[in-house]
């Protein structure tokens, strides 16, 4: 049964789980095909095919599904419900496979494992094993593939931390050694926080990361903060956040605020309910740290480059001029 073509849309949870999915499916002999980075064509397809009330990121997802559907035997769209105690995915992820099936026609069959550890602690594993059976008859091989994929995924997550953590350590040193007095020569440390499908989709965020890097800015993201640090920072909230992805954003925002980096840009989607809640949480917390500049960029299909450039430029000017003022007055 080899050489099954399984399509994975490069949107939404792709940015969280792709290495895990890919390793598992490929080690069982399937061919994984991704839709590739978002383009204008994909965005147009998504806006045209998705229901108009749905949020922008889901529209983008639709575009990726449309561009993949005629090239693959199966579409891989898991139903992610719950992967940790006390937190869930947004309801749109819960209904994603249904939404896609009910509103798009002539789709290939979907592989749609439900991952919900509330039902059973082994739900994560079991759903993968069930998927494996679609591709292979060899139970032992399926088991093996799952454990290996999971192991390498954990290594991947850690490597993201380890690789990037030195930069954070660097910030602390800069501050403690007062190198900042000569701040114009030092790179600025700016965190880009938001759902990974906004932060890492360069088409949607209009190349924000590379624009910042071009101006010698050290870009930090939530992936660089260790999970235990995120959990620790979240403890200060009166009521826990019950969205898995938002927890990461808020926890890392609090972490970066405490580290007193130069600025935080929160990237949000216009129609996103989670974002509108946590945006306010982060904004209120940021008021306690007047030296950390904070702003929010809102994205949707109408977002033009000019507006984002103006805001980015003004935000950086604000930080640079403030630092210049501070170094002249201390």
């Amino acid at each position: 049964m080899g050489n099954l073509k399984i399509g994975i849309p490069q949107a939404l949870l792709y940015y969280e789980y792709f290495p895990l999915w890919k390793n598992f499916l490929e080690s069982l002999g399937a061919e994984v095909i991704i839709s590739g980075p978002t383009t204008k064509e994909i965005l147009d397809l998504g806006v045209k095919s998705a229901i108009s009330e749905i949020c922008f990121p889901v529209k983008v997802f639709y575009g990726h599904v449309m561009s993949l559907k005629d090239r693959v035997d199966y579409l891989f769209i898991p139903r992610m419900v719950c992967v940790e105690k006390g937190a869930y995915f947004c309801p749109k992820f819960l209904g994603l496979p249904d939404m896609v099936k009910s509103s798009l026609s002539s789709l290939p069959p979907l592989i749609e494992p439900t991952i919900d550890i509330r039902k059973s602690a082994t739900s994560f594993k079991n759903s993968f094993l069930a998927v494996g059976k679609l591709i292979s008859n060899n139970s032992k091989k399926i088991y093996q593939s799952f454990y290996e994929a999971q192991k390498s995924f954990h290594l991947y997550l850690q490597s993201k931390e380890n690789e990037l953590n030195p930069e954070i350590i660097n910030i602390n040193q800069q501050y403690s050694t007062k190198l900042l007095q000569n701040n114009m020569k030092n790179p600025l440390n700016i965190a880009l926080l938001g759902h990974s499908y906004l932060v890492y989709d360069a088409f949607i965020n209009l190349n924000l990361i590379s624009k910042l890097k071009k101006t010698k800015i050290n870009v930090l993201t939530a992936e660089m903060v260790r999970k235990q640090d995120i959990e620790r920072k979240l403890k200060r909230l009166h009521k826990p956040i019950f969205w898995t992805l938002s927890k990461k954003i808020v926890g890392s925002a609090f972490y970066f605020l405490e580290k007193r980096i130069d600025g935080i840009i929160h990237l949000t989607s216009f129609e996103c309910g989670e974002d509108s809640m946590i945006g306010e949480l982060i904004r209120q917390e940021s008021l306690k740290y007047p030296t950390v500049a904070y702003t929010e960029f809102v994205f949707d299909e109408h977002t033009g480059e000019a507006g984002i450039d103006t805001r980015t430029e003004a935000f950086l000017d604000m930080i640079i001029r403030r630092k210049r003022y501070e170094s002249n007055h201390t």
């Binding site: 500049a293 702003t295 949707d300 507006g307 003004a314 935000f315 001029r321």
Partner: peptide, 12 residues
């Protein structure tokens, strides 16, 4: 103190 500390623009 003669510097910009915050700004906002209309969104959509």
């Amino acid at each position: 103190n003669g510097i910009v500390v915050d700004f906002g623009m209309n969104t959509i």
